[in-house]
Amino acid sequence: MLKLLKYDWKRNSTLFYATLVILFIAQLALFVWNSVKSGWDAIVLGLSIALIVAAMFILFYQVCKTFNHHMSAYNRRLLPVRPIEEIGAVLLLQLIYTVLLFCVAAASLAILLSSMDNFSFSSLKDIGLKPVAVISSLSYSIWSLLHLLAWIMLSIAIAWCFRVKHRVWIGIAAFIIIQSLLYWLMQKIFGLGGEEGNLGFIRLEFSGTEVHRLSDTKVDWFDPLSVSFLSEIVMFIGLLCVTAYLMKKKIEL
């Protein structure tokens, strides 16, 4: 799997380094702008976060594209490796990208925040934002991203099972239909979803368009008895197994 990862990394390295360098330069430019101009804090912070999200999206899209490429690449399909190793390599690539991006984003945000007039790092402690809570929240974000990638890989694999011109739409339809069915099923069995959402350490309650924070230090998904997290793990494994089966038995060149 690590050898596959090595070649996935090489394949995408130019875009990855370019994305990180451009992100860093843009963040630096925002820092300089904010240092010389006052009263732009909110806009600069918003732009900074938007840039991080854009970088995340570019890299996520590239990882999906890499998996899609592997479906039709002879050099990959002829390798004496298990499909699950191919899938694992792509997931690992996404994991590494996300962690590295988070590091660059954290560093650049820290530099940016230090240049803001009305901000001090000690104020984060005052509102109860502890390191464990931040790490758990970031970990949950990474998990969610990997879960979404597993869904997209399954959809890509389903699309490749068909030898028709517009198979991409079959993949999109499969993504929507299977997700809706499973969501409905989970709601029926576990009563999940609806009015409550779980974002790692923050439990949220929705009323209309407003979001209220209920508790900010409870790490539900670390609890092995947590039904929602366990069901997510089971679903994740299921997605990988079905994708591997399709790659082995149904996708043809």
Binding site: Y7, K10, R11, L78, P80
Partner: peptide, 30 residues
């Protein structure tokens, strides 16, 4: 697949590769 060597009518290489990358790729997996 470990004992079969197939040359398809499509490339066994990727666009980013140099000739020595293609050699290294095959050496790493076979």
């Amino acid at each position: 697949k470990l004992i079969t060597s197939f040359m398809p009518d499509k490339p066994l290489t990727e666009d980013w590769m140099r000739v020595d990358d293609a050699i290294a790729f095959h050496r790493d997996f076979y």
